[in-house]
Design a protein around this nucleic acid. Structure first.
Lengths: 222, 222
DNA sequence: CAATTTCCTGATATAGCGTCAGATTTCCAT
DNA sequence: ATGGAAATCTGACGCTATATCAGGAAATTG
């Protein structure tokens, strides 16, 4: 859990920094919020319920958060802190079978990230898509490093490559990120339809490989 | 607008079919719902507000819909009725420059579809991702034809192709659909960052082309 | 251990939810 | 036309949640 980072800077609704007791209350409220987010739809989560589950009163909730949206935003920030691990993978080798391996592990890491923070990330994306600035900002915060390092890799490939250079690196990176995100959110619903997680990862990895390197993916483990 | 189809079968909350006056009231309520969906976040849309905007009372709303969720579901059903147009494009040629053209127009059509129904589709996807069965069903209804015909095309390409056959057609189709969906939801936020809609469409089209045909995309209109 | 700061909550005004009985409008047979 | 039945709408109501504030309980400090 990457909680400690944000804990440091946590403040009261009036801007005052928090002591240890307050910190733990705040944490309980956040935990209650994820749990409810996990188990029911956003639309019918209420402050009362969060407070009840956290063993405290609604008034206390408002001491720390403006509304349910703000609590969710804080959770999204915590999730964003976990992404960097994915970024390092991108700097691996992108040649031949090794490249496919890199691609696969990125896909896999991304999906695992989503499975871990699913509910929060879903809400974060909806809010961002609906135009809420603060949520857009958190999403960018989480995705930017991924986009940047993907785009860099694509550029590298383009310079030494056979591949046609008419691909905008950043657009390609964005497309890949979009693919990863949506697939990660979606895969659970695909499995009952007969598409295994493995097949999905493999397909996604191939697409990524091809888009990054500009070459066709090598046949599976020869 | 594809409203007439669903209008026919519209019923009261108690299952009774609707007369003309009721039909028009129901429509006004649905219109008010989209408008609010377009202009504010799902979380703070209320029945009262919908009723106000439709020039009627909350009690009337409940005559037609169980809650805001159901109204949204009906709207999602109407959006789903528009998708088939996209499907026909998939049956076009996938060879060389023509293939890229096909791919581009699919991407373009998909994005336009999303721009037209954005708010509703966003909510539909969130609800589906959150596990609400009825919304999953509507999404499948809309996406199935696309998936099916994409998967068929991929299979065709595999039979006569050089390309390695270790791509699961349905998984690949799902990945493409995921890419299209996410990108369509996302593109507006990418433009300020310097990624034009055109670059996005082009990239997306190339990925689609490569995934469907198993060949590298031909260089742009060289 | 009392004063002080930190943290929590009961009370409350306001507003939305969801239901029902009855008012209003529309329709149709006469 | 016109009176009554069918269709449609809504005012009123009990319930629950929101959001705020003044003051109470708990921890900390000198």
């Amino acid at each position: 859990m990457a909680t400690s980072t944000s804990e440091k800077s946590a403040v009261d609704q009036s801007g005052r920094p928090l002591g240890p007791r307050a910190l733990s209350t705040r944490r309980r409220l956040l935990v209650a919020t994820v749990e409810l987010l996990d188990s029911s739809s956003v639309r019918d989560i209420s402050v009362v319920e969060i407070a009840r589950r956290a063993g405290t009163s609604p008034a206390t909730f408002y001491q720390y958060f403006k509304d349910v949206g703000e609590a969710t935003l804080r959770l999204a920030e915590e999730a964003a802190a976990e992404v960097p691990a994915v970024v390092e993978l991108i700097d691996g080798s992108w040649r031949g079978q090794k490249g496919m391996e890199t691609s696969r592990s990125i896909t896999d890491a991304f999906i695992r990230h989503w499975d871990a923070y699913r509910a929060v990330l879903l809400v974060r994306n909806l809010a961002a898509d609906e135009g809420e600035r603060s949520f857009q900002k958190v999403r960018r915060l989480a995705l930017r490093p991924v986009l940047d390092s993907l785009a860099r890799k694509i550029e590298e490939s383009q310079s030494d490559a056979v591949a046609s250079g008419d691909v905008h690196p950043y657009a390609a990176a964005a497309a890949l990120a979009a693919l990863l995100e949506r697939l990660a959110a979606y895969h659970k619903e695909l499995e009952p339809i007969g598409v295994t997680r493995e097949a999905l990862v493999e397909t996604c990895a191939r697409i990524m490989y091809q888009t990054v390197t500009g070459r066709l993916a090598p046949p599976a483990n020869g």
